[in-house]
């Protein structure tokens, strides 16, 4: 399951990243393996999405969210 596949309100736990370059940037922003993520909302035009992770809200594009594998 990828983060980009979750619907609004669903949550999961980060397992790993499929893109090294993106993983470094995501980890700096608090997206870490073992951390819970919840999809809060999707932008009016369908992309990007807003998620709650490690206590704050982060927005990222679906393409970026698709590099995050969930448990």
């Amino acid at each position: 399951m990828k983060l980009s596949q979750l619907a609004i309100g669903q949550q999961g736990i980060i397992k790993e990243f499929t893109d090294l370059e993106m993983s470094v940037k995501l980890m700096e922003m608090g997206c870490l393996p073992g951390e819970a993520v919840k999809v809060e909302r999707i932008a009016p035009l369908g992309d990007p999405i807003a998620v709650t992770v490690s206590g704050y809200q982060l927005s990222l594009r679906k393409r970026e969210a698709s590099t995050i594998e969930l448990i």
Binding site: E21, M22, K25, L26, M29, P48, A50, Y56, Q57, L58, S59, L60, R61, E64
Partner: peptide, 11 residues
């Protein structure tokens, strides 16, 4: 170059 968009939404 790849474009990306990872941004904090402040309260």
């Amino acid at each position: 170059l790849k474009s990306y968009f990872i941004m904090e939404l402040p309260v």
